[in-house]
Amino acid sequence: MSEARRIPFNNPGWAGNTGEFQLTEAQVRGDEYVGKRPPEGGHPSGTSTYPYMLAEKDPEAPLFEGAYQERFEKIRSRYPDARSALLPSLGMAQELRGHLSPETMEQVAQLLGLSPAYVRGVATFYTMYNKRPVGRFLIQVCTNISCSLCGGDDVLQAFLNNTGTEMGETSEDGNFTVMEAECLAGCGFPTTVQINSRYYENVMPKDVPEILERLKAQGE
């Protein structure tokens, strides 16, 4: 197997560790197929499928301007009413700002003609919306049944140890926030870890330092 095809640390984003793959990581993740998607959202059918967490965040980013405004309008056009566009709009606000502050919720409420309290009720129902700032990399380790059977708790502990953080707290350098996650639907490839929007699968405690180094060096 050539070096280019070597999939690092137990094949992130890939199903299994049997050593039988002939695909690159980009092929597995679909990066080649998807290509670079335009910031204004491309075809309206898929405008809400952008990453919900990015390493680079700007808590002051306007809601929404330029390409993002265009994306917002495309999203809005795909639903029969404004309320239905709330989840994708919150997702986009978080993509830009990194978390949903009270001000962000209020602005999204205004954009969609909803009450701020209503938006707060919805935003807090869903776990993917960060209600407070997180590090550049939000690391969510699955410890649910299948991963738990295969050592998910140890992987979680390894991330906590290697980042020197407590659960849910952000490391001093602002890089990492580690959280426990519920089942990420990667049960056959334990332990499944979600870092920002990307999945890392078959993660073992020994892989953790390498993953963290790669994140610091290359991003997700």
Partner: peptide, 14 residues
């Protein structure tokens, strides 16, 4: 929500 139509209350979290 329904009577006052002034949605100032919500259920937070789940």
């Amino acid at each position: 929500r329904e009577v006052a139509e002034d949605e100032r209350l919500c259920v937070v979290e789940r």
